[in-house]
Simulated scan of single mutants.
Amino acid sequence: MHLPPNGLQSLVCQRPHYAIAYEQAGDVTFVHCRVDRWSAMVSRALRRDFYSLMTMRMGPLYAYKENPDAKFIRFANRMGFRVYQVFGAWVVFRRDEA
């Protein structure tokens, strides 16, 4: 696995306060999530949309971050991701099927 994959991102969900995109790197799909404004309502909606996306696909999703801080790790865990591999400063998270 080469990090960062630097592939083309495909937007799969666009909402007023967040967006979710997939990035294909060989047979691995990475997910990117941009949250513009965080609130309890946004958190619930994001988890609901993310769960719907997971039910539409087969196989795991991966996320990566260079030097993730505690806030990012907490967010990844809340979304169902767990640490999968570490490559130097890069940490790869994995979430299995819904």
Rank of each mutant, 00 (worst) to 15 (best):
L3E: 03
L3F: 05
P4W: 07
P4Y: 08
P4E: 08
P4S: 11
P4A: 11
P5E: 06
S10N: 13
S10A: 09
L11T: 15
V12L: 12
V12H: 05
Q14W: 08
R15P: 01
P16G: 11
H17I: 07
Y18C: 00
Y18S: 00
A19F: 07
I20N: 02
I20A: 05
A21M: 14
A21G: 14
A21N: 15
A21E: 15
G26N: 07
D27T: 10
V28P: 00
V28F: 04
V28W: 02
T29Q: 05
T29A: 04
F30V: 03
F30E: 00
V31D: 01
H32Y: 10
R34L: 10
R34E: 13
R34F: 07
R37T: 03
S39C: 02
A40P: 03
M41D: 03
V42S: 04
S43T: 14
R44N: 14
A45K: 05
R48T: 06
D49V: 00
Y51L: 09
S52T: 08
L53K: 06
L53W: 07
R57E: 09
R57H: 07
M58F: 04
G59L: 07
G59T: 04
P60R: 02
N67K: 15
P68N: 08
F72I: 09
I73P: 01
F75P: 02
M79E: 09
G80H: 00
G80F: 00
G80A: 03
F81P: 01
F81Q: 04
R82T: 11
R82L: 05
Y84Q: 05
Y84H: 13
Q85M: 12
Q85N: 06
V86N: 08
F87N: 12
F87L: 12
A89R: 14
W90I: 05
W90Y: 15
V91H: 08
V92W: 02
F93G: 00
D96R: 01
E97D: 08
E97C: 07
